[in-house]
């Protein structure tokens, strides 16, 4: 057991936990932040992605001790001052979620990608950089569009390919 302190979504938290506690267990079970999801045991699915000091990480493969003293942001803390993050809005606008289980991980991954990727975001980059997040519902088509749309909004760029600008091609 150890007393673990960290900042979660801007709030300082301290709890006595077992050393073998994973960050995701700490978030879900101790802090009741159940938006971060456990989808696999092998660091493959990405449902558990959070930001640690602004950097994306799969929280099922981080010990709570490894995150001690850091600043963790979860899906519950992404909206600022009651205003949804542009990517949250884009997910809704572009129908980038269906069941919603992988969605928190997708949004956290996408938000970090938009914030940190040094080059231009295009379909190829998004597909390559997001490969660590699985979705079983959407076939990824609309998630790609949501990330590109929010990326353009945040970075002040334009999406030139019309097939990438709308959520789907209407007949």
């Amino acid at each position: 057991m150890a007393l673990i302190s960290m900042t979660v979504n801007g709030v300082q938290v301290s709890q006595e936990v077992d050393d073998s506690t994973l960050l995701i267990e700490f978030l879900r079970e101790k802090l009741k932040l159940t938006g971060t999801h456990m989808g696999c045991d092998t660091t493959q699915c990405g449902c558990c992605v959070v930001h640690i000091d602004g950097v994306s990480a799969k929280s099922c493969t981080v010990l709570v001790g490894q995150a001690a003293g850091r600043s963790v942001t979860t899906i519950e803390g992404l909206a600022k001052g009651g205003e949804l993050h542009p990517l949250q809005k884009a997910f809704r606008e572009h129908h980038a979620l269906q069941c919603g289980f992988c969605t928190p991980g997708q949004i956290m991954a996408g938000a970090e990608l938009i914030a940190t990727y040094p080059g231009e975001l295009n379909e190829h980059v998004v597909r390559e950089e997001m490969e660590g997040n699985l979705c079983r519902c959407t076939g990824y088509h609309n998630i790609v569009r949501a990330i590109l749309a929010a990326g353009a909004e945040i970075r002040g760029t334009k999406i030139t390919d019309p097939t990438l600008a709308s959520h789907s091609v209407e007949g």
Partner: peptide
């Protein structure tokens, strides 16, 4: 290596 989240750790 792996994916971007893995590369971060």
């Amino acid at each position: 290596i792996g994916d971007r989240h893995v590369r971060h750790r």
